[in-house]
Computed example of a mutant assay.
Amino acid sequence: MHRASDLVRRVFEHRSGFVEGFTRRYGLKRLVYFEAFDSIRNAIQREHNIKHWPRAWKVRLIVANNPDWDDLYDVITN
């Protein structure tokens, strides 16, 4: 399984502004959605697929799992 610590590290890097791209450009700091996978290959494929979805689909996915858009960082660090 892709370790949760990898997600913690990745979220920390984004929150700290270490990573160029969308999250840094728009100052996004909250983790509002994540999925766990047994295989890194499946995780990468899912991430690639979601990146190409229309925004409305992504919002529906988040709202279905996190209707208040709570920051889930504490969930993955505890």
Rank of each mutant, 00 (worst) to 15 (best):
G21K: 04
I62F: 11
D71G: 08
H52R: 15
H14I: 04
D68P: 00
L31M: 07
R3A: 05
D71K: 04
V8C: 00
V75Q: 12
A64M: 04
T77E: 06
D71W: 05
I40V: 10
Y73G: 02
W57K: 15
G17W: 14
E35F: 06
W53D: 11
R46M: 00
L61T: 10
H48D: 03
R10F: 09
F18K: 14
Y26E: 00
L61R: 15
D70S: 06
P54Y: 13
N65H: 15
F37I: 01
I62R: 08
R46Y: 11
A4C: 02
P54Q: 14
N49K: 10
P67G: 08
A4K: 07
L72E: 03
Y33I: 00
S39N: 09
W57D: 15
I62P: 03
S16K: 12
S5M: 01
N49L: 12
D74C: 01
I40A: 13
Y33H: 14
L7I: 10
S16E: 15
L61S: 03
V8S: 00
K58E: 02
L61M: 15
S39L: 03
A43H: 04
A56Q: 14
A4P: 00
A36S: 13
N66H: 07
F22I: 06
S39F: 12
D74L: 07
N65V: 02
R24M: 06
M1H: 07
Q45K: 14
N49I: 12
L31D: 06
R3E: 12
R30S: 10
S5P: 02
P67V: 01
R55L: 12
S5R: 13
K51T: 08
F34H: 14
M1A: 02
P67F: 12
K29L: 04
R55T: 06
A56L: 13
R60K: 15
K51S: 14
L61P: 02
L72K: 09
P54E: 15
L72M: 06
N49V: 11
R15F: 09
F12E: 03
Y73F: 14
H48Y: 10
A36N: 01
D6L: 01
R46A: 13
N66C: 04
N42M: 07
R25T: 09
T23R: 07
A64K: 14
E47L: 07
W53I: 01
P54N: 15
W57G: 01
F22M: 02
A64F: 01
W57T: 02
S5D: 09
P54K: 14
N78A: 07
R60Y: 07
R24Q: 15
F18R: 06
P67D: 01
N78W: 13
S16F: 03
V63N: 10
S16C: 04
V19S: 02
R25P: 00
R24S: 11
R10S: 05
H52L: 09
F34Y: 15
V63H: 12
R60T: 08
A43S: 07
Y26L: 09
T23F: 10
A56P: 00
I40M: 05
R15I: 02
G21H: 09
G27H: 12
A56R: 14
A43E: 02
E20T: 04
L31Y: 11
P54W: 08
D70Q: 13
K29V: 04
F12A: 00
L7Q: 04
Q45M: 08
G27M: 06
T23Q: 05
